[in-house]
Structure formats: structure tokens, C-alpha cells
């Protein structure tokens, strides 16, 4: 029998000639002898009933119902309703496409809508009523309207500037409220020019 030491020496030679696959040159033993050395390593006896067990398991496997693929199940389930469902879907699309125009309701803007345009001018909401003679015949005033719609400042552009007229003008402006100017719907301050005639605000321009 080949000794273990000889086999180890064979392995040493093999490692030196790793990739050639030719281990016989210069070795004490041939590669066949070395392979035989390993092949003689004992193998436990095969269980006597192993073959019978295998046949039994294969027979069980044969009897087992074959698993039905999911795709086949889906196909079988959907096949009876495939044509009606397709026709129904097509009809629905057709009807929707044809009649949608008839039922289309135009959308109108509500009065309470906040304009969302880029920029809106201030609008006069309320003004004061001044009784008696104010002395203001014709006057043009430039106003600065703040975010709350109140007059923050003013400048008389045209008209008389007597103290009595100025007092009446200030009284008028204090009780005048505007809708403020907006930028993208958000209130902002803005200047407007106001024409006042006979104590009433006649016109408004930016």
C-alpha cells in the first residue's frame, strides 16, 4: 500500500507543477497510484433500502397533482368574460367620447373668486358722505393705498389747497376704503390717482 509520506511528497510535486496536469515526471509514484490512494478511502455502505426509498418517493411525486400555473388559471377564469368586457369597455369609451360635449357645462367665475392674475389694481369699496359745502370743486389727488386697503399717504396734484379744502379732503380719505392691489392674489401697496369733484370721488386711475 502506498504510504502517506509518499503521497504527501507526490502532492508537493503536484503543487510545483500545478497547471500541467502531468505529475508523473520525477515522482516516486505515478498519478494513477496517487489517485488510487485516495480512491481506496473507504465509503460507507449504501443503505439497503435506499433504492426502494427513491422509487417510493418518485412514485409519490408521480401521484401528486401537478401544480396548475397561475397564468393558466387566470386565462381560464377570464376567458368567458373576455369578449363582453372588451365590447363593454369599447362602448363606454365611444359613448363618453361622443356625448361628453353635450353634457359639458361651461364654468363661470364666481363673484367671490379672488383674482389670481399677475397684478390687480386697487378698487374703491366705500367712501364717506360729506354734508354741506366742502369747497372742493375739482381736485386730483395721488394716493398710496396700503395692503389693508386704507389710504397711507396722499399728494394733491391739481386743485386749490386752502386749509378748509385740505381738511375736507383728509376727512374724505380717512373714511374711504379700497380693495388693495394684489400680486398673484396677495395684497400689496399701490398708488392711484383720484379725481374729486364737489366732495365726491368721481374717478380712479392708476
Amino acid at each position: 500500500m502506498l504510504t502517506l509520506r509518499k503521497y504527501v511528497r507526490f502532492l508537493t510535486c503536484c503543487v510545483g507543477e500545478s497547471f500541467t496536469g502531468e505529475h508523473d515526471r520525477g515522482n516516486e509514484i505515478s498519478s494513477d497510484e496517487a489517485a488510487a490512494f485516495l480512491r481506496q478511502m473507504p465509503v460507507s455502505a449504501m443503505p439497503a433500502d435506499l433504492t426502494a426509498s427513491i422509487r417510493c418517493r418518485i412514485a409519490q411525486e408521480r401521484r401528486k397533482p401537478q401544480p396548475v400555473p397561475l397564468s393558466w388559471r387566470c386565462k381560464r377564469l377570464l376567458q368567458p368574460v373576455a369578449v363582453p368586457a372588451s365590447v363593454g369597455l369599447l362602448s363606454a369609451l365611444l359613448i363618453f367620447g361622443v356625448f361628453i360635449r353635450i353634457f359639458e357645462v361651461p364654468v363661470h367665475a364666481g363673484s367671490g373668486d379672488v383674482p389670481l392674475t399677475l397684478r390687480t389694481a386697487p378698487r374703491l369699496r366705500t367712501t364717506a358722505l360729506i354734508e354741506g359745502e366742502t369747497g372742493i370743486k375739482c381736485m386730483e389727488v395721488k394716493l398710496l393705498i396700503d395692503q389693508n386697503g386704507r389710504v397711507a399717504d396722499y399728494q394733491i396734484i391739481k386743485g386749490n389747497r386752502t386749509p378748509d379744502q385740505v381738511r375736507h379732503l383728509e376727512y374724505l380719505l380717512v373714511f374711504t376704503v379700497f380693495d388693495p392691489a394684489t400680486v398673484f392674489g396677495r395684497p400689496t401697496q399701490e398708488t392711484v390717482t383720484l379725481a374729486v369733484r364737489d366732495g365726491y370721488i368721481k374717478s380712479l386711475s392708476l
Binding site: 478511502m41 465509503v43 460507507s44 449504501m46 443503505p47 435506499l50 418517493r57 418518485i58
Partner: peptide, 24 residues
């Protein structure tokens, strides 16, 4: 197959189980 499985697994019972699995 048993011989190969036994040499890899080094256990008789495991090799027998492996052989059954292989044929299945």
C-alpha cells in the same frame, strides 16, 4: 451518486437523504 454525496458530506445518513433529493 451515493458515493459522491458521501465523500462530500462525510455522513451516511446525510448522503442517503441527498441521494433521494437528487433523484427527486
Amino acid at each position: 451518486v451515493f458515493r459522491l454525496a458521501y465523500r462530500i458530506l462525510n455522513d451516511r445518513a446525510d448522503a442517503a437523504d441527498a441521494v433521494q433529493e437528487v433523484f427527486l
